[in-house]
């Protein structure tokens, strides 16, 4: 089954964990979380939503050079299977 890209919405780099206790971190740490992004040329782990369908958010790993999609994950799978890198 083939679905159009327009059925989906992009929502940026995936697996950026919100700090557990924002009030305890510095402005710099908060700024890193808020705005700083990896923006890699190559493999990118990113979040999409099936917005014109089931409205589920999910994660894919896509190559930002040629748009090859390597794998996709539900949010739960992503949190378990993709290694968290500390920001």
């Amino acid at each position: 089954m083939h679905l159009e890209e327009e059925d989906f919405s992009y929502s940026g780099e995936a697996l950026i964990a919100r700090p557990n206790n924002p009030s305890s971190i510095s402005d710099d740490e908060w700024g890193d979380y808020l705005f700083m992004r990896k923006n890699p040329k190559g493999r990118h782990v990113e979040q999409w939503q099936h917005s014109s369908g089931c409205r589920k958010f999910f994660v894919i790993e896509r190559n930002t050079i040629d748009n090859t999609i390597y794998s996709s994950y539900t949010m739960i799978q992503a949190s378990k299977e993709i290694k968290h890198e500390t920001n």
């Binding site: 919405s9 929502s11 995936a14 979040q47 939503q49 917005s51 409205r55 589920k56 958010f57 739960i76």
Partner: peptide, 13 residues
């Protein structure tokens, strides 16, 4: 709506 779904599904399951 999308904003709420996003937090619910990705950060606060």
């Amino acid at each position: 709506y999308q904003w709420l779904e996003n937090w619910l599904q990705t950060e606060w399951p």
